[in-house]
């Protein structure tokens, strides 16, 4: 088991990085649709929907890229894990309020229900934990 652990942690880091670069890119290419997706959550006022839609994709892409090139790994893993946590809270609130909306996680082209997205985000949290440990393993 010990032998495989480094590879496992490395895979977590690369997978998490790739997923967020991809997700960020999809959303950065269609900011207005993403703002619409955020508006569907009915959590933020209109202006903040746009502000979040304009900035979030770039934060995701930046942190994702840093994971891929192994720079500031623990910071990036912490940030993406934290973001995933925030997304999960938002998704849970959707379920509690009984809203039937698309999660908007990977842009609007890949509609996903809130329940599926919650499970997927739980997986992302695991990846973030793995990536965080990976970042502490070596003196990076």
């Amino acid at each position: 088991m010990k032998r495989y652990l480094p590879h496992l942690l490395l895979s977590c880091r690369l997978a998490l990085g790739a997923i967020f670069v991809y997700a960020g890119l999809l959303k950065a290419l269609d900011v207005t649709s993403f703002a619409g997706s955020i508006a569907n959550y009915q959590l933020l006022p209109e202006l903040l929907n746009y502000l979040a839609a304009a900035t979030l994709p770039y934060i995701e892409m930046l942190a994702g890229s840093l994971l891929l090139i192994r720079r500031h790994v623990r910071g990036a893993a912490l940030l993406l894990g934290g973001l995933t946590g925030v997304f999960m809270i938002a998704l849970a609130s959707v379920l509690i309020r009984g809203l039937d909306i698309d999660c908007g996680c990977f842009g609007v082209a890949a509609p996903t229900s809130a329940v599926t997205a919650l499970w997927r985000n739980a997986g992302l949290l695991l990846l973030a934990a793995g990536a965080f440990v990976d970042g502490g393993r070596r003196s990076a």
Binding site: A28, T55, Y58, A63, L78, L79
Partner: peptide, 17 residues
Amino acid sequence: RPLVDAALMVVVGSLIG
């Protein structure tokens, strides 16, 4: 360190966005 790094990423990412 990670927290500071993460905060910086938020700032830089937001500015780019």
